[in-house]
Nucleic acid binder design. Structure first.
Length: 533
RNA sequence: GGUCCGAUAGCUCAGUCGGUAGAGCAAGUGGCUUUUAACCACUGGGUCGCAGGUUCGAGUCCUGCUCGGAUCACCA
């Protein structure tokens, strides 16, 4: 094992050598090249991030009036001063602004944009000044002579802070006229192509930071930028949390490291606890813990967190994925479908602003969810199918699943493949269970929870014998869970919603890797040696 | 795991029949400075994923490997 040198990690090339030289020259001007802070103003109401200023109504209003003025002008004609000046007076009256961000282009011109990852704002530096430099000496002392000198030393991608006043350009873009310039941090590595961003999916996923920078510098992008995808993901998740809390649910955290991998049919990751000298499994589902809490009196409970399954990786599978699971006492499968539908509608509305979502060319309509039994669904797409408990799932996967584009609840599952669900009182071979499909993909799975401890025990025993017959994914008996149910669990319904897949649908992304910040990948190997550690 | 596709400059990509390694952006020097993919001129920059093989000669053909993507199987 050898510790790599810095140069082995950041290999020098013409780009880094030039940036190293620039950093040295900047250091001579400003002192510390990695200062500790930059205080932003609050002209926009809150802290003046670039995004906050960009959406500040007073700036937007000037830009729209300027657009009207320009609409009355010919090609290449400059807006007359008597119309432009009042707008500039208005902007200047907002006072001094201090903003910070990353340079989206080299500073060869005197107009450049800064980005905060989401938005860009143009800044303007005039060679003739006045343009002061703010030294990083802890006192923020001013050097009125060397502002332009610093400007010329800056590289594409460097982080700077500027102070100045707002104005509108002849082309109608509100910008900051920089009076003071402060160096904040260096980009030692070059920026990606500003037209194309990062094309290599491997680099995008391994170096998500670089992908995020690239998409924030990009001039145009088809669909959402990487940053916008994850902003939307955050919105979906927070809207779901709010919805559940508004309906009386409480969030809990149950074990991720568990002595038994149960609650779902899947292969687990195994690990070892040294002090206790026992094997533990990364949880495949929180289900049985959450229902223990229902036994204990949490009538409405949810957990939104990661599950781990040691199975294949595909465009819709990542070894760790985010699941929202919740349980509601005294509710049955019908009530749960209604609640789920309402929650998803709200979430889609909040995240996308509407209920129609375009996914890979299909218009998905979230305003109405279909409901159809598994048997009827099979007969709809394959009228000649011979359906029994054994063939049902296979027929469903083959003929029905790919056709379920619009949100559809499939109901009435065979009981034999639903070991934790209650049977339908009218037909004991059918489980009161549903799965929600959208765009051919399973998004949610819910049921009326089996709360009879003796029947649950029998179902576990059936699963264990499946296991002995070689089904590695048959469910494991959990004795403590039987004991919990024996204290009495109220009738209840529960559901698990695959958050990553929902985010895929709402961001029009084909791969689960595009909606997980750091998806699972093989570890990188350096050339010529084994990975250390 | 199977099948197919890909890996060339920091980034995005060309590279014909096997015959001197190319462009744009980025970088360096100089000019210009109300531009918005800024522009103009010049310059530097390559282990063609890795290891073999065929050949007078391989980015190009063959074999193996690594990593990635698509897809199928399993799964949510």
């Amino acid at each position: 094992m050898s510790i790599p040198s810095f140069d082995e990690i950041i290999e020098p090339n013409d780009q880094t050598i030039a940036r190293e030289a620039s950093l040295k020259a900047i250091s001579a001007l400003v002192g510390n090249v990695y200062p500790n802070k930059f205080a932003r103003t609050s002209v926009s109401g809150g802290e003046d991030t670039i995004t906050a200023l960009k959406y500040f109504e007073k700036l937007a209003s000037v830009e729209s009036r300027m657009a009207e003025i320009k609409a009355g002008l010919g090609e290449g004609e400059r807006p007359p001063a008597e119309k432009k000046d009042p707008l500039n007076e208005e902007l200047k009256a907002l006072g001094t602004v201090r903003i910070a961000g990353r340079l989206t282009t080299p500073t060869r011109g005197n107009f450049v944009h800064l980005t905060d990852g989401m938005s860009k704002l143009q800044i303007y530096c005039n060679k003739k000044g006045p343009l002061a430099l703010i030294r990083n000496d802890g006192e923020d002392s001013l050097d009125p002579e060397n502002g332009w000198a610093l400007w010329q030393l800056l590289d594409h991608g460097d982080l700077i802070g500027v102070e100045g006043y707002l104005f509108v350009t002849n082309t109608g873009e509100v910008s900051v006229h920089v009076e003071k310039l402060q160096f904040l941090a260096k980009a030692m590595l070059p920026m990606p192509d500003k037209m194309h961003g990062i094309a290599d999916a491997e680099i995008r996923q391994r170096q998500r930071y670089y992908d995020l920078i690239g998409s924030s510098l990009q001039v145009e992008s088809e669909g959402l930028t990487t940053r916008e995808v994850f902003e939307r993901r955050a919105k979906i998740i927070s809207s779901m949390r709010r919805f559940l809390e508004d309906h009386g649910y409480i969030e809990v955290e149950t074990p991720m490291l568990t002595p038994k991998a149960t609650g779902a049919a899947a292969k687990p990751f195994k690990t070892h606890h040294n002090a206790l000298d026992i094997d533990l499994y990364a949880r495949i589902a929180p289900e049985l813990y959450l229902k223990r809490l229902v036994v204990g009196g949490f009538e409405k409970v949810y957990e939104l967190n990661r599950n781990f399954r040691n199975e294949g990786i595909s465009y819709k599978h990542n070894p760790e994925f985010t699941m929202l699971e919740f349980y509601c006492a005294y509710m049955d499968v019908e009530g749960m479908m209604n609640f789920c539908e309402e929650m998803l509608r709200e979430s889609v509305q909040k995240a996308t602003g509407g209920l129609m979502v375009n996914y890979e060319g299909n218009e998905v309509n979230f305003s109405k969810f279909e409901r159809i039994s598994m048997r009827d669904a099979i007969l709809k797409y394959n009228p000649d199918a011979e359906i029994n408990d054994r063939t049902m799932i296979g027929l469903f996967d083959e003929f029905v699943e790919p056709n379920l584009i619009q949100p559809t609840f499939i109901v009435d599952f065979p009981k034999s493949i639903s070991p934790l669900s209650k049977a339908n009182p009218a037909n004991t071979n059918i489980a009161e269970r549903f799965e929600l499909f959208i765009n051919g993909m399973e998004v949610a799975n819910g049921f009326s929870e089996l709360n009879d401890p003796k029947e649950q025990y029998e179902r576990f025993v059936d699963q264990m014998s499946e296991r002995e017959r070689g089904d590695e994914e048959a469910m494991v008996l959990d004795e403590d869970y039987i004991r919990a149910l024996s204290y009495g669990m109220p009738p209840a319904a529960g559901i698990g919603i695959g958050i990553d897949r929902l985010v895929m649908l709402l961001t029009n992304k084909h791969s689960i890797r595009d909606v997980i910040l750091f998806p699972h990948m093989r570890p990188e190997k350096r050339d010529g040696e084994a990975q250390y550690g």
